[in-house]
Design a protein around this nucleic acid. Sequence first.
DNA 1: TTGAAAGCGCTACCAG
DNA 2: CTGGTAGCGCTTTCAA
Lengths: 337, 337
Amino acid sequence: MPQGTPHSVPTSADVARLAGVSRATVSYVLNNTSAVRISEPTRRRVHAAAKELGYVPHAAARSLRAGHSRMVLMPTPQIAVGPLFSAFFNELQWALSRFDYTVVQYGSLGLTGEEAARAWAELRPVAVLAPDATALGARGVAVLKRSGAKAVFTLGPQRAEGAHALLMDQRLVGRAAAEHLLARGRRRIGVVVPEEPGLEVFSRPRLDGVRAAVRGVAAGEVTELPLAYTEDSAAHLTDRWSALGLDAVFAYNDDYAMLLTRALQDRGVAVPEDTAVVGADDLMLARLLRPRLSSVRIELPSGRGLAELVDRVVREPGGRPEVHDVLGASVVHRESS
Amino acid sequence: MPQGTPHSVPTSADVARLAGVSRATVSYVLNNTSAVRISEPTRRRVHAAAKELGYVPHAAARSLRAGHSRMVLMPTPQIAVGPLFSAFFNELQWALSRFDYTVVQYGSLGLTGEEAARAWAELRPVAVLAPDATALGARGVAVLKRSGAKAVFTLGPQRAEGAHALLMDQRLVGRAAAEHLLARGRRRIGVVVPEEPGLEVFSRPRLDGVRAAVRGVAAGEVTELPLAYTEDSAAHLTDRWSALGLDAVFAYNDDYAMLLTRALQDRGVAVPEDTAVVGADDLMLARLLRPRLSSVRIELPSGRGLAELVDRVVREPGGRPEVHDVLGASVVHRESS
DNA sequence: TTGAAAGCGCTACCAG
DNA sequence: CTGGTAGCGCTTTCAA
């Protein structure tokens, strides 16, 4: 560090001084401003100076001046999220970065809808993609829009008033499972409902989807099966299994399906002969279990397409909130059903 | 929206105007500045005006003025990360927010060390916690420090020159597994090395740990077993299993252990009689497999403690880089070994 | 082709 | 107790 005060962060003024030009010129050069032509020697001097100082532009100052940022804020979901959604998340993030957005995940831990929205709004993101509509609400959406957010999306099982929605209707998952089981002659269907808090937004609609599919089917019956993700809970649930009189179970997802299947087998209940089991997410897990686990494959949309959608809304804001149904569900039939 | 231009974001000046006070007063009131006493009626007017306008302060402007932010930047790891590390991550994030830091995850997709560091540095975080030292390097650390970051930590299996390190020495995992197997009389130990890119930073040191533990043991031998996370790959690996002459396998983690165990069982290889298997991470999965899977339980430090550490370094920067060894590994013995 | 200067929203001095 | 105002780092007219 040959120059200047040792422990201060270099600014564009420092670069200008070192290169012997004005701050304006530095800005032109470093941003490749096409409206203005800078001589090659000057460019080189500026670049050299910037490199020597280790100059990094100050994003806050830049977006303050510009009046807008290209930050897309994705609040991290409160609940632990599986590999499926993680992969989707990553793909979306990558796709958005292709559109030159800066994607930032922000954990708003334990803040209620409007408070959380205010915290996010302080960053003045150009778009917000909230995985949990409940942690937002109409009020939250309003706060974000007032703070200049051009696009507010919810992506998940619920929507929020005023926001665009990438709706992942979990009822379809339950329906697919139920229709599969019904088609295979099963009638008395148990539905695992995880007791872990925060999962209701997924488990409730999945249960509802099963109910809807079974409704009207002769002798069809749906039984809710609360289950915590522990061996004890599974043991307890299966203690008096035959008394429940179920011939099939939709187990919420593959992990719970494994837990339940194991407990059933330990009790001598034959899968699928006595009780069919269907999971969801179609993880590798499902293929490795014995019997191989039938599972609802969930199809999420391509990150690329969603990034385009977000970009479009950012460029042309003000349209009415759009609701896109973006969940596909189909059963992969294996041995457990 | 009764006032002003309809579609512009309210600023503190707008609040001041509406409340009939100066911008300074607004700032004092909203920040509860203790050095200055504002009359109660004025406070109320300001708060009312802020609420009516839906005013949200502009974080960029604030930190520009203040000359520093309280943003802790955590680049998201390139590779998919298991539930164990995710939980640790969340806890750390929560603990940092208790210290009034704003934690932000930033996905720097496909950028090399120094480029990534520059992208992060643009946000002028007060601290950076990088889960992947390789995606940083000494140069990256330097860039961040020059941009004003008070604390740069790596947290993971590697460290970077100039940065503090929360070192998670994966060799301990391999060593724990190997010592367990050796103690149970196994000598010819296979070690699964995932073929998925990006996992080398974990799998290599785990393998090294096994090698180190076996070194010097009579008749001890270590065989590297490349394995992709597919059934095909597992089938291929186990095709001529007996020819490998292994009496034990450390399977990298529980997921790979399940994959391998299944393939072995399908081949008629008895676990643990013919071949013992040990996983890692001690997931619920391990307890549900049959035979129940022995697994290396990995202990990560408390988020609380780490948050304190980060906070200390932020407040007193300039100290020599500290290296904290923060990984505990111990085998949970079950039936597979 | 380059420079001077205004101003983005905010906070912290210093006057009144 | 409150207001005026400078200035954080940057971009972008407008002049030279």
